[in-house]
Design a protein around this nucleic acid. Structure first.
Lengths: 226, 226
DNA sequence: ATCTCAATGTCATCCTGGTGTCATTACGTA
DNA sequence: TACGTAATGACACCAGGATGACATTGAGAT
């Protein structure tokens, strides 16, 4: 379980030290020195946790925290700051941060807090899948693109989950068949799978005729975008 | 939303101050000066959060924390201590505490952390649930919309509580079945659940044919509005 | 005991939309 | 070109949920 962490801080020294230390402890670390780039990384990659400095050249940490919360309510956020005034701490926690660490801090303590945070927020892999703009929340059985919720039928949902669970790999037609119809009721083997794939594409693809998520592998099956 | 907090600390001065301050902020507070009494209170009452001192006359805070975790994995625990050595902090967090506060601390910060902890903790054992205009007061077993009280039958009430406790998540038909009829009673598996859902909807929904609170997930079950 | 009423469970029916089939078209490759 | 496979559109059917009516149960009251 290799967790990935995004650190946004404008202090390059701290970035270096933190990155080295966290990587030493088995985390995947990506750094950004401004909110602008950090935001892009957040949108592009599916990080497990965010270390956010309060003072950034292009934005206030508290505002940023609230902004992120609206889009990614589940993402664990730890605020990182030089200020140690109580009022700031309160704002940070009430603004939706999961924890708050004051610089200068002991790396070991930070790591302990990171682990605690990650432990609390389980639904990262098993229960919540995100590929690009697409999010599958298994607990709520909600699929959404950006923030728009998509209504899927049982078969469509199962199919999507299967594909997404094996994203990157080819899903053989036979495997899909086995998944969707365990007690095979299908006799004349028509093209039911294709039809469900089509329905899915119509719902999740921006342009169903030029699929981005669900790629056809002729003669084999389908592959879900990694 | 009146949360109840149990404080276990052998320093009576701190107990007094904390109790006064927390009560001022709307919490219900019970105090204990030893692990022995604290444990009894914990078993007897259903507290929402535990403030636990590390140094107690009759036990080590870390051990206690782990012990409690085994029995009550969901109970939010905040460790309270005069020691500020990093190693202690790590042990505390890894031992299952949700947060860690070093004495002397600012009351406001502590309260912020308490709130943050409670916000994170599962709404499973909430005494009072409110979703939109709907309020469920578990202590009094009263359900009301706006201020109008709604009379519910036992089954309807249980069902509503279950759905509301897991609001946002899907309640699988099987889970509902297990909840309402612990393992037996029903033979011909007809559509009893649907019927109770309908009754509930007729009572709590403004327009039962266009449900706002109880959403149907075809093929799976139901989901309560978040 | 019986009566009454509310709570609960069963059943028949309706109806929507999920699912599967097929004919046709489009695409890619030998 | 022809051939095989996938995409597409149209459509028929049927499963599962909603609904209404009714049967059964059980707790109080008389």
């Amino acid at each position: 379980m290799n967790h990935s962490i995004l650190i946004i801080d404008d202090d390059t020294d701290i970035l270096k030290v933190l990155k080295a230390n966290l990587e030493l402890h088995g985390f995947g670390v990506i750094t950004a020195e401004s909110w602008m780039t950090g935001r892009d990384i957040l949108a592009a990659l599916n990080q497990d946790l965010l270390l956010l400095d309060v003072m950034l050249p292009d934005g206030d940490g508290f505002d940023i925290c609230r902004t992120i919360r609206k889009e990614r309510p589940l993402l664990p956020i730890i605020m990182l700051t030089a200020k140690d005034k109580i009022s700031d701490k309160i704002i940070g926690l009430d603004g939706g941060a999961d924890d708050y660490v004051v610089k200068p801090f002991e790396t070991l303590e930070l790591i302990a807090r990171i682990k605690a945070c990650l432990r609390r927020s389980k639904p990262t892999d098993e229960e919540l899948t995100a590929v690009g703009d697409l999010t599958i929340d298994k607990k709520r059985r909600i699929v959404s693109i950006k923030t728009r919720e998509i209504g899927l039928t049982p078969k469509e949902y199962e199919l999507l989950c299967f594909l997404a669970a094996h994203r990157g790999e080819v899903a053989h037609r036979e495997d899909i068949k086995k998944l969707l119809w365990k007690e095979h009721k299908i006799y004349s083997w028509s093209r039911v799978i294709d039809v469900h794939i089509r329905h899915l594409r119509q719902k999740i693809e921006a342009d169903p005729s030029e699929p981005y998520f669900i790629i056809t592998i002729p003669g084999v099956g389908y592959r879900f975008r990694e």
